[in-house]
């Protein structure tokens, strides 16, 4: 998994590519934690090149969403692929997340 980060104003875009599984999710969650420590940001997850996501990855996204809700910031998920959408779908996350 690769995370590339770009900041525009108060919103931070994370382009996540590869696999977001029980091993790599730690990396993403650390990244998000460290961003949250520096302030309140709106998050954009770009999943265009994300091939695979497991429940571990879903949990990181959920946590981020909850954090956003608590801090009145936003989490947006962009360019989602079909296989990932299916996972979101079957776990019932689609309605909870803002998927553009």
């Amino acid at each position: 998994m690769n995370i590339s980060k770009t900041q525009t104003g108060d919103s931070i875009t994370l382009v996540i590519s590869g696999r977001l599984d029980s091993i790599t999710c730690v990396q993403l969650s650390n990244e998000i934690d460290s961003i949250n420590k520096t302030g309140n940001f709106n998050f954009v997850f770009d999943f265009e090149t994300l091939d695979y996501i497991s429940s571990a990855g879903l949990r990181v996204i959920l946590t981020t969403q909850k954090h956003a809700n608590a801090n009145n910031t936003k989490l947006e998920i962009r360019n989602i692929t079909n296989s990932v959408r299916e996972v979101f779908d079957m776990t019932g996350l689609l309605p909870i997340l803002t998927i553009v």
Binding site: S54, V87, M90, T91
Partner: peptide, 11 residues
């Protein structure tokens, strides 16, 4: 309600 279990049952 577990997400993982949900995925397994689905697939």
């Amino acid at each position: 309600d577990d997400m993982g279990m949900t995925i397994v049952r689905n697939l």
